[in-house]
């Protein structure tokens, strides 16, 4: 169901939603970029073309999160659960690549197999959130979603989506959850707008010029020196993994009588360093290869898809401009 909605009407709706929902949206921070924030003023909502630095992932898989308590009192100890926040949440401005990232994360944290391990914290965050996406209108030159079976105007993982049509938004409601939030918006859509929308979609898709021709399997390149060569400039920081909409590796540590889950990444030497001093991924070669293989080989073997949505963040923010699309495409598989 689609309707044309005035931008002011959407802001008014958000204002109203904030009474009994947690509302999250991209917010412009002067000189620092765009960041998703819990908002307390509807006018702070930013639905412009700039991309958020951190992907929406952080509202589902928090950068650091208490996952259970571990009380230690006078020689006895008992674990206790940390109460979860269960307030209804609406997230505006989620881009197609980020929403698709959530669909991929679901395979890990909310597996279909009932005997699989369901991550209740992730699932709670998913079920209490309504995702109102924002289709892209100005892709960045580092974006390459189209060549990874995605699109700047697709809607997988969204409950509703907004298309910026200049003075208005076209709102498309995709699920019951989306209807519950945006169903009350007044408006209809005429045939002309419908046509204009389709034309705009096609135009935007063509604006994604970067492509990645990742081979179906990287397996044959595993032992190649190529991985040493392409990892030489890697600094072993966490930028690419932390800002990736699909990277999900984490660490578990105990602090303040609680168990903390926090982001971790395959670029850090300590990620796999064992207490004995052995490290199965001793150099940047093995560590960087792991990231590329996880994205373009291992995940595909396990789930049939690449673990990359082509959002371009790891390219935009890599301090030394390593380009995973070039690296994956250039892997010697013959």
């Amino acid at each position: 169901m689609k309707k044309t909605v005035k931008k002011e009407a959407l802001i008014a709706l958000i204002e109203n939603l904030m009474k009994d929902h947690e509302v999250v949206s991209p917010v412009e921070t002067a000189g620092k970029g765009v960041f998703y924030r819990k908002i307390d003023k509807a006018k702070d909502v930013y639905l412009g073309p700039a991309f958020a630095v951190e992907p929406v992932k952080k509202f589902f898989l928090h950068p650091s999160e208490w996952i259970c308590g571990c009380n230690k009192e006078e020689g006895t100890a008992s674990p206790c659960p940390v109460p979860a926040d269960d307030k209804k949440r609406v997230i505006f401005g989620v881009r197609p690549c980020e929403a698709r990232g959530l669909v991929l994360l679901d395979k890990i944290f909310a597996p279909d197999d009932p005997a699989g391990y369901q991550d209740t914290s992730y699932i709670d965050n998913r079920s209490r959130s309504v995702i109102v996406g924002l289709a892209c209108s100005v892709p960045d030159r580092t974006c390459f979603c189209v060549s990874l079976d995605g699109s700047p105007v697709e809607t997988r993982g969204m409950d509703a989506v907004l298309f910026d049509m200049g003075d208005n938004f076209i709102v498309e409601i995709l699920t019951e959850k989306g209807k519950s939030i945006l169903g009350s918006l007044p408006g209809t859509i005429d045939a002309g707008s419908e046509k204009a929308l389709e034309a705009a979609k096609e135009k935007t898709k063509k604006l994604v010029v970067k492509t990645v021709k990742a081979p179906d399997s990287l397996d044959a390149s595993f032992k190649s020196d190529y991985w040493k060569k392409v990892s030489l400039s890697c600094l072993s920081c966490g930028v690419c993994t932390y800002l990736c909409p699909t990277c999900h590796c984490f660490d578990l540590v105990e602090e303040e009588r609680k168990k903390l889950r926090c982001y971790d990444g395959c670029a850090f030497p300590d990620f796999t360093l064992e207490t004995s001093g052995e490290n199965p991924r001793p150099t940047k070669k093995e560590r960087y290869r792991q990231r590329v293989f996880h994205k373009f080989d291992y995940f595909k073997k396990n789930f049939g898809e690449n673990l990359c949505v082509g959002c371009g963040r790891c390219i935009r923010f890599c301090p030394v401009k390593i380009d995973i699309s070039e690296v994956a495409a250039g892997a010697p598989i013959k």
Binding site: I108, H248, C249, F250, L252, C266, E274, K301
Partner: peptide, 19 residues
């Protein structure tokens, strides 16, 4: 095999060999 593990659930991402 033994490798550094954290979650034990196939989620935290550090103990893989291949897929």
């Amino acid at each position: 095999l033994e490798m550094k593990m954290k979650c034990g659930l196939g989620k935290c991402g550090r103990c893989n060999i291949g897929n």
